[in-house]
Design a binder for these strands. Structure first.
Lengths: 244, 244
DNA sequence: ACAATAGTGTCTCTCAGACAGTATTAT
DNA sequence: ATAATACTGTCTGAGAGACACTATTGT
């Protein structure tokens, strides 16, 4: 028995039943990165529900089509629920989708990475988590074995960050309001995993126009250092050459 | 009446019913680009079904969880169905997802862009299309008004291509096997929308190590030009400085 | 005074930009 | 010979790399 073809867009939409087609599940996962104890660290939670109950995983969850207006909003909501803050930098990295990554069946996940200053974060357990913590990144991974394909997703994000560090100003988002150039350089070096020439770094950063001096000094070490801040509302800066 | 909690992963999975949760629709769209008549052109089809019946749109379609193993496979399948070829370059660009982009409801789409040489393509209508053609890109858009948010998706891809052209070798994928450096330069210039210094371009390309001479010459113009080809299985090359 | 950290001076090197000059073909 | 297109020579300039040097603090 053939259904009659609707004659207008309106008629088509009135008769459309989305539930007739089998769909993959759709989720968002976020790799939240910070610098803590001179290490790049990723935020992970211990799952309190099946599947992978009691295993560590990235922060994430299904899109709730009744609550979320957009994909990015889903990411921002999750991020806020776990860290209590709005990330100064959030980038969509990749979407993976296949039949095997989730034992419950065909699923896709859009992966974001967020950078934020450690001092600003106050971790919150939220629902579905038995524990939450920062795990130091070593190379492309983390000591804890992660659920699903989350180890892969983390690796992709770390890769993306490392490839961008050499021509962008992304590491400033790992610092709070004021920071010294030495501190910023240290952050670059931690991510790159190797030292940078101080002079090249100073030249580059000061010429970029994204930083401005404050009147304050950091008095921790020996000679006090000038504190800088990101110029009001500056986007990430893209340099025309690579450093390091 | 509270359902009892399953006691093991196995029990949980056996009882799991994916259809209980409302999911967004999940699709893939592909911006297929080529150079034709000295212009960057995008492949579009005229839709033969609702919604947006008889409107132009990008190539795409829902993920078929019974046929497709992975998201990328969905993209490759669509691409092959419409062009008859395997694209030498395919890159995932963005995933958009919200409640309004499709009148049928919450939907997400993962967008890829593909580069391929015009000569290799033989357009195929396939199912669901009333027409298929190349449309010249002007700036960030195309003359034809596109269905859904496809104009935005196209713009994001053109943006991505333009931003990458200045530091990568992507344009080689718009040429077939053999090409001259002048032809390749012309392709760069079409994408960038402005001329490049010939000497800088030659130096850069020859130093990159991604090209090798063939024994043949192109005899079209006055002085014949050396034909080059991509060295066996070379990936896209990333330069350390920007051109143009 | 000295150690430690912050910051500068300055030379070299690589590669893009500019542009003039040479090479090889068809007519 | 001339026009057209393919290439090369070579100078300049911007910015990275190297590294020695000066500056400012606490002890």
């Amino acid at each position: 028995m053939k259904k009659t073809q609707p004659k207008t867009e309106k008629a088509f939409l009135e008769n459309y039943d989305a539930s007739l087609y089998e769909k993959p599940s759709a989720a968002v996962d976020i790799v939240i990165l910070t610098i803590k104890s001179n290490k790049l660290q990723a935020l992970i939670i211990k799952r309190d529900d099946y599947p992978f109950k009691h295993k560590w995983s990235l922060i994430g969850g299904f899109i709730d089509i009744n609550k979320d207006q957009t994909l990015e909003q889903t990411a921002k909501r999750k991020l806020r629920e776990k860290t209590g803050v709005k990330a100064p930098y959030l980038e969509q990295v990749i979407t993976v989708g296949n039949k095997k990554r989730d034992p419950r069946g065909w699923s896709i996940s859009t992966v974001y990475f967020a950078l934020l200053p450690y001092e600003k974060v106050s971790l919150q357990l939220g629902t579905g988590a038995a524990d939450i913590k920062w795990g130091p990144c070593e190379g492309d991974s983390i000591k804890e074995k992660l659920a699903f394909d989350h180890a892969d997703l983390l690796a992709v994000c770390l890769d993306r960050l490392r490839s961008k560090v050499v021509y962008t100003s992304l590491p400033v988002y790992l610092h709070s309001e004021n920071f010294t150039l030495s501190e910023l350089q240290a952050t670059y070096e931690i991510i790159m995993g190797k030292p940078i020439e101080k002079k090249s770094f100073y030249r580059r950063m000061l010429a970029s126009g994204i930083l401005e001096e404050t009147n304050e000094m950091r008095k921790s070490g020996r000679r006090p250092a000038k504190l800088y801040r990101l110029v009001n509302n500056k986007e990430a800066h893209y340099f025309t050459r690579i450093i390091g």
